[in-house]
Every structure is written in structure tokens, then in C-alpha cells.
Nucleic acid binder design. Sequence first.
DNA 1: GGAAGCGTACTTTTT
DNA 2: GTACGCTTCC
Length: 664
Amino acid sequence: MSEELRSQLNAEQYETAVTLEGPLLIIAGAGSGKTRTITFRMAHMLDSGIHQSQILALTFTNKAAKEMAERVKSLTGKKLSNLTVSTFHSFGVKVLKESISHLGFRENFSIYDQTDQISLIKDVGRELKIPADGFDPYMLSNLFSGIKTNRIKWDGTNDMWRPAYIEYLNHLKVYNAVDFDDLIVLPVKLFKEYPDVLEGYRERYKYIMVDEFQDTSLYQYEFMKLLADAHHNICVVGDDDQSIYSWRGANYQNIINFEKDFPELKEIKLEQNYRSTQNILNAANQLISNNTNRKEKALWSGMDSGKAIQIYYPEDETREGLFIAETLRTWVVNEGRKYHDVGVLVRTNSLTAPIEEAFLDLNIPYKVSGGTSFFQRKEIKDVIAYLRVIVNPDDDVNLLRIINTPRRGIGIKTVQTIRNVADERGFSLYSAISALRWAEDSPLSDRLKGCLADFLSLMEMYRTRFDQERKKGDVLRSFIDAIDFWGYLLQEHHTNDKVAKWKFQNILRFCDFFDRWESNPDNLSPKLGTYLNKITLMNQSEEGEEEGQVNLMTIHSAKGLEFDLVFLAGVEEQILPHARALEENPDNIQEERRLFYVAITRAREKLFMTCCRTRRIMREVMETGPSKFLEEIPAELVEFHEPDNNMDDELAEDLFAKMKAQFK
DNA sequence: GGAAGCGTACTTTTT
DNA sequence: GTACGCTTCC
């Protein structure tokens, strides 16, 4: 490694970056320069003659994958189109794309997100005539996920759902569809049952790196271990204190499994924090020391103690939003800072709404990450559903979504008839429609047969066009025109054509995304199916990295990020710790504390927390109390700003109204 | 049989 | 805000 790069790392970071062979466990405390260290490590690998195609780096979010790839590229100045940096799930897709036929699926399979999965479970319920009361598709989706990944066993309490689960699996197979869990579970199955497939990947990927290791599930660990077992060049980086995905199967016991499975490992701790002031760090350290069963860490910072943590008690969530908006604007204006250096964090997505309102009122530029993503919007999902059926006609869930959207006279009764035929013959709906189209003894009227025939020829025509034509973006535009989606939107929103216009704008944006993806030179095989699989795994529209915007997001999506100024809103009992998490299992208090820890350690210079005295939760105004986690932060690190009781409600209301008017 | 209109409940975190 | 269910109308 060059002297210049070396001088940018401390001793432990350097050791991490130059240890390329053998198993390596990095315990990287919050803000310890983890990303920098592992990008340097990858750069060093490339320098040492390891070919880019031999490296596999696995992350949890697309954002993290993208960032890591970009940083390695800019550090080395190389193009690196053969370097694999991807999420576990995307890597699973890649494996399945190549070899899923062994498992009885075809390579044009659909991926079902939780929404699709829930529609499928509803269909299964209807088919098995399960009475609606006590049938909770959302709960079942979690149960099935637990069963599939061995986190939950069948027992006396859930046994009655077994037939539904079996039916669910059958349907996936018939529809040629896989769910999110399958993206990990099926590759593992493939590796175990077809050793030559596994061998191929072991040959190729000689160096593996796993980021956010504390968030791996037992299944993902197995996936990773199968790949690494041949050569043992595996580096995992994690921090048990930042494990916040246990509800999704993450299990930081994997750190212990790793020590057991790779006993010759080298362990390095990165404990110097380069991010936060000493005050912020002390608060975080004190808080997290209340958790048991941690790996001991002594995070220290070379920085000044900095400002005390500020705690405010707004009257309600509207004023909380205004307080945050006001305060951060003052900071930006008075100290000449940028809006993008501010992060506003919340426990749940629903808490963003009042804060957004305040930002809109005061004209503060902001962006929300997480929440309902662009690709989850109804109009976009509809278009995607069409494309899914074009790629994979057997995909019943998506077929049902679009068969009568826009309306083409195929209603519930007709679908029911088709469903019966499909079930009788073990067909998918699409095959059943094809069979019924010309059938003499068809139970359908000629008019309906005509509608179905039109639908089929539309889909078939565009399947050919998407296959054969170069500019698929234009094919997509032509398709949207052919189904008259604009007319449909107008009709659906005849009371408010602004909504229709906005939705159509989104569709056009979607077409633009598609163009950009298609014309990206790194994109070796721009096939429609590949694109669909990619966006199903994409949470937010990666585009739009605009500067100068306040970042508003959940704590979960803030992991890995840092901001000069951080606001943590809704620091109240019931919210942080979240009531539902504790209800599920009182031990979850530790994970809630880790969430709080992650939130605090996002801040570099200044940290504000707000607890409302009352808050509207689902239309009801509730009295709320401050989070008990606040008591775990040493008082000398904190400045409390007690609510001003002299100011009565009306007066305050008036004041805020004036304040708002002033900035309109 | 299919479409349109209205009311109600929903929101813990994400690949 | 939105998705779903129920009722009513064509």
C-alpha cells in the first residue's frame, strides 16, 4: 500500500486493510471509519494482483452496495465493471438466474415483494375457504417467512396454517415466482443439492467480504459460509451494538458462529471514533452499557467534548415539526451550513408526516428516504405488473392485478370462471385464458371471449416487441399508450385531474428510469426481466441525490450515515422503545436500545431530541411520556428545556400561526 | 355482471 | 393519504 494511503489509516485500520488471506473478524464501532477501511482494503486487494472478478462484497442495502462500489472506483481510478458488490438478495437473484432450472423454476421467474406475497396469501385463503375472521394475511406472511427460514417451527399454536403454507408454496411454483426469502433459501438449497454449481462459485469468488455482519440471518450466514468454506478468505465487518434487524431474522450470534467455524481467524477491533464529539459518544456509551451480552468495546474520540445534547418538550407533533424546522433553519442560516448536513430521524415512517408539513410550511428543502418507495406507488406497480406478466405469463398475482386495469370488461365473475378452469387442469390463469379463448364448450360468452382474446394478443405482441426491439423504453411508452393508461387515470380521478396528471408524470419518470438503465454502458444484458428483478429489490429510487436537502428518515434507514446536526423526534415511551416491539417480546428492549444508540451515533456535532407531551396516534390525541432511555444518559451531558407552562395553548397557537405567516 | 361511490381502518423497522 | 369492503346503481 502506498505511503499516502497508509498515512490515512490508524494502526488497526491499516492491519485490517492489509490482511487479505484467511478469516478476518472486524468489530467496528460506530463512526470508526469502517467504510474507509474496507474500501482501502479492496483497493489494496486489486493492487496486490487479485483480479476484480474474484472479489465478492456483500452488503444489506442497495445504497451501501452502490456507495462501496463507487468509493472503490474513485479510490483506484479504475472502471471495475467485473467487481461484484451487491446485496445478499441481489446476489441470490444472480445465482438463481443462472441455475434455478435445477429446482423446477424457469429463469424468467417473478420476485414477489411483501405486497405480492400478501395478495397471494389472500388468494390461498379464498381457495381453501378459510373464514375471514382470524385469517390475517399479514401475520401469515411473517409466519411463512419464519417457517421457510427455520426461525419458527410448526407447533400446536400454528399447525392449523400448515395446509395454507403448502398451498402457498404450490402456488409460487405454478406461478414461477419466488419470494424474498427464497432469494437466500433457494441458492443454499441449490448449493447443497448440486455441488458442481457451488464449485463454480467457489472457483470464481476467492475473496469474500460481508459488511454489516451483525445483520446477517442464520440462513445468510450459511449462504456465505458455503461459498467461503473452500478458501477461508472471508472478512466480516460488524458491530453487535448496531444490530437492529432481528425482527427480520438477523442474529448477531453469527459473530459467535463465525469464531467457531473459522477458529484460525484474526480479530481486529476498530475503537477510535472519528465522527462524534466526546459528549455524544459518552451518551451513546453510557446508554448501550445497559445492554447485556455485548462484545466489550471502548469507543473513544479524539475530539472536544462539544455541545450538550439538547432535549425539548413540544406540546404536540405539529409543534415538534415546527420546532425542528425552525431550529435547523436558524442553524443553517446563522452558521452558514448546508441543509444536507442535517438528519432528522424517527422511529416509524408515520412520524415523518407532521415534520414534512412543517418543512413545506417553512419552505425547507428535504428528502424522505424509505417509506413507500417510488416503485410501490399504485400506478407504477400497475405498469410493473403488466411487464411482469409479459415476462412471465404464469405470474397469476400480477395478472390478477392488471387483467381489468384499465377496465376491459373482465370482472370478478369471469375471473372466477377462469380460476375454476385453471384449478381443474393445474394451469396458471394465463394458460387457462389461452385455452378458453377458442374453446367450443367454453362457459364464457362470445363477447367475453373477444375481450380475453384482445388481452392475450396485446400481451403477446408486446412480448415479441420487448424481446426483439432495441429501444425498450420506447416500446414501454408505446405500450402505455396502447392500454390508454392516461385515459384510465383520468377516468379514475375525474374529480381531481391534478392527481391524474401527477400519476402520469410518475409513469413518464418510470419510463425515463428505464431508458437510463437500458443505455447504461455497464449494463451488459438489458433484458426486461433483469430490470424488473432489480427494481423489486430496490427500496428507493437511487436517483435524485440532490444537494442541499434535509434528510428525513427512519433510524433503520439512517444506519451507516452521519450528519453534523441530528434531530431525533418522538423520543417517547410507546414510540422509542416502540410499544409493539415490547408487546411482541419484552426482551426486544435491548434492540430498541440499540436503535436509540444508532440514532445518537449518527450525529457529529450537535444532537437535539424532542418528546411531545401529547401526540395524535391514529386520530386519537394521546398523553405521552418521555422515553425511559433518556434516564440512561448521564445528566451532565444533557440540557433539558422544560416546557414553558406560562404560555397557554391559545397564545402558543397564535404565535405559531404568526410565525408561519411570516415565512409564507 | 360490472362499475361507481362512500366509509373505515391502517402505520414498526426492510431486502 | 390509501386500500379495501360494502352498498347501490346501470
